[in-house]
Amino acid sequence: GKELVLALYDYQEKSPREVTMKKGDILTLLNSTNKDWWKVEVKATANDKTYERQGFVPAAYVKKL
């Protein structure tokens, strides 16, 4: 199945390749080969529509579930 990670801290994206997350968010882990930056998929809701974004977050800010 898919691997999930838990956001340990809030993170505000600093570039278009990154994604914003809030502490407590559960994210889908896409790639953890880089030890510093993990690629995740974030589900977000805006205007009653759910959309998914993929991007990088600092590996130290998340932990595998």
Score class of each variant (00 low, 15 high):
A60V: 09
E13N: 07
V19M: 08
E13V: 06
Y11F: 06
Q12P: 05
L65D: 02
K39G: 05
E18S: 05
R17A: 11
Q12D: 15
G24E: 02
S15A: 07
E41L: 14
A7E: 00
T50W: 10
K23G: 05
L30Q: 01
L29F: 02
L6T: 07
S15F: 05
N47S: 09
V42W: 07
V57Q: 01
Y61R: 05
L29G: 00
T20I: 03
E41Q: 12
L6E: 09
I26F: 05
T50E: 14
W37G: 02
D48G: 15
L6V: 15
A59N: 03
K14I: 05
N34E: 09
P58E: 03
T50K: 09
Q54Y: 06
N47R: 05
Y9T: 07
K49V: 15
A59R: 10
P16V: 09
F56G: 00
D36N: 12
A7M: 02
K23M: 06
L6S: 04
M21Y: 01
K43W: 13
K22S: 07
G24H: 04
V42E: 03
N31S: 12
K35S: 12
N34I: 05
E18L: 05
T33F: 08
K35P: 14
A59P: 04
G24P: 01
V42Y: 11
G1R: 14
A46Y: 15
N31W: 06
L8S: 02
R17V: 10
L29M: 02
P58M: 03
L4C: 11
Q54G: 05
K35T: 09
S15R: 09
V5A: 09
N47Y: 11
S32M: 08
Y11T: 01
K35L: 08
Y61T: 06
S15P: 03
P58W: 04
E41P: 01
D10V: 02
D48W: 05
G1V: 14
K23I: 05
T45E: 11
V40H: 02
D25A: 07
D10K: 03
L6G: 02
V62N: 01
L65I: 15
E3M: 11
V5P: 00
P16N: 10
G55V: 04
A60N: 11
E3P: 10
K35H: 10
T33D: 15
W38P: 00
L8W: 03
F56L: 08
S15I: 04
Y9C: 15
K35F: 08
K22A: 07
V57Y: 00
S15Y: 05
Y51W: 11
A44C: 15
A44H: 14
G24C: 10
R17M: 11
V19D: 01
A59V: 05
Q12V: 15
L30H: 03
N47A: 11
V62I: 08
Q54M: 08
N47C: 12
E3R: 12
V42N: 06
D48S: 09
L8Q: 04
D10E: 05
A7Y: 01
G55T: 01
G24V: 01
K43S: 13
D10I: 01
S32Q: 13
G55S: 01
A7N: 03
T45K: 11
V5F: 05
D48N: 13
D10F: 03
D48H: 10
I26K: 04
T45S: 12
V42M: 14
E52T: 15
Y11E: 03
I26R: 04
E13F: 07
W38H: 01
D36F: 15
K43A: 12
T28P: 15
L27D: 00
V40T: 00
L8T: 03
E13H: 07
S32L: 04
K22C: 09
Y61G: 05
L8K: 03
Y9E: 07
L6D: 00
Y11G: 00
K2F: 13
A46V: 15
T20S: 15
K2H: 11
T28S: 07
P16E: 10
L4K: 09
T33K: 11
R53V: 08
K63I: 15
T28F: 10
